[in-house]
Every structure is written in C-alpha cells, then in structure tokens.
Simulated assay, not measured.
Amino acid sequence: MDIKQLIHDDDAVSPVIGVILMVAITVILAAVIASFVLGLGDQAQQATPQASFSFDYEGGTERALTITHDGGDSISPKELYVRGSNMDNQTSGDGNTGQWTSTAVDGSLNSDSEVTAGSSARLGDDADDGVPSDYEVRVVYETQEGDSSATLAQDTGPDA
C-alpha cells in the first residue's frame, strides 16, 4: 500500500460537504416557512415607529404645553395620543388628553395629515386654567387595531 496515495486521496470530501450544505439549506428554509405560518412574520412588520419629541412649557398666564415632533418616522395622527396626569381640565377622567391634533404653520388645526418633523400639538389653549406646572405627560403610539402600544416620549412639569 502506498502512503502517498492515502494522503492525496480526497474523493470523499466533496460529497460530505454537499450533504452538509443541503441539510443547512433545508433547516433555514424550514425556519423561514415556519415563522410565516405561525404568524411571526406579521409581527416583524408591525414595528413601533422611532420618533423624537420636544416639550415646551409656557408658565405665567398662558400655562400651555407645546409638544413638537423633532424627527424620525412619520406617524398617523389616528395612532398618536397624548396622555397625562395632573391636568384636570385637559383629561376626560382616564388621563387621556386625546388624539394628536397638529397645528399647521398658519395656525389652523390639521388632524388628517401625517405627523412629521415640525408638527406640533398645543395643550392648554381651550382650558380655563391651562396646564398646571406639575403635569406629567406622555406621547403614546397605539395601533388602530389597539393590539399594541408604546410610549414614544414623556415629560414632567417644572413643579412635578
């Protein structure tokens, strides 16, 4: 028997690598199909939007709070809520100040267009006493189906 022939004999390497690759492809394909069959693929598409908001409180006689969308994803105003506590005139008992109402550049209210960078909502204009200085407020994203929600931003007043 020739030892050199045993060292250079690599006929079995190619079929073994082929079988390993076929098994790996089968496992990956099965995992992808299973994720969509079980509904995991739908959950990946319903991601929470990424957006940043700033808060500007005006004390004194105004006592108003302006919330501005600074940047990030655009969001439907039907899926964006402002919720808070210690805002007796702003809430309806459950701490919900309501859906986002954008203020356009000309001062008119616009609740149909997307909330994008530069859009703002102002609390305290319609209330008798305005927004108290010990407020706690959150900007909440909630899907229209109501199956998921997330707090995008939050702020507290200077006396909270």
Rank of each mutant, 00 (worst) to 15 (best):
D11I: 07
A12V: 11
A12Q: 14
V13R: 15
S14K: 11
S14V: 04
S14M: 10
V16D: 09
G18S: 08
G18N: 13
G18A: 08
A24D: 05
A24G: 08
T26K: 08
L29Q: 00
A30E: 11
A31K: 15
F36I: 15
L38H: 05
G39T: 13
G39S: 12
L40W: 03
G41E: 10
Q43S: 06
Q43W: 01
A44W: 02
A44K: 10
Q46S: 06
Q46E: 12
A47S: 10
A47N: 11
A47Q: 11
A47F: 02
Q50K: 14
Q50I: 14
S52P: 00
S52Y: 03
S54Q: 12
F55L: 09
E58M: 00
E58F: 08
G59D: 13
G60R: 06
G60M: 05
G60H: 03
L65F: 07
L65H: 08
L65N: 08
T66A: 06
T66K: 13
I67M: 08
T68F: 08
I75V: 03
S76M: 03
P77E: 14
K78W: 12
L80P: 02
Y81P: 00
R83I: 12
G84V: 07
S85Y: 00
S85W: 02
N89E: 05
Q90N: 09
G93N: 11
D94Q: 10
N96T: 10
N96L: 10
T97W: 01
T97K: 01
G98Y: 04
Q99R: 11
T101I: 12
S102W: 09
S102I: 08
S102P: 01
S102L: 03
V105M: 00
V105L: 03
G107W: 01
S108L: 04
S108N: 06
L109F: 06
V115Y: 02
V115T: 06
T116D: 12
A117P: 05
G118Y: 04
S120I: 07
S120K: 14
A121I: 10
L123K: 08
L123Q: 09
L123I: 06
L123V: 02
G124P: 02
G124M: 04
G124D: 07
D125G: 06
D126Q: 13
D126M: 04
A127F: 05
A127E: 11
D128F: 09
D129P: 06
G130E: 02
D134V: 01
E136L: 03
E136T: 08
V137T: 04
V137R: 00
R138C: 03
E142F: 07
Q144A: 09
Q144W: 12
Q144V: 08
E145S: 15
G146N: 08
G146H: 13
D147G: 14
D147Y: 11
D147W: 11
A150S: 15
L152H: 06
Q154H: 01
T156P: 00
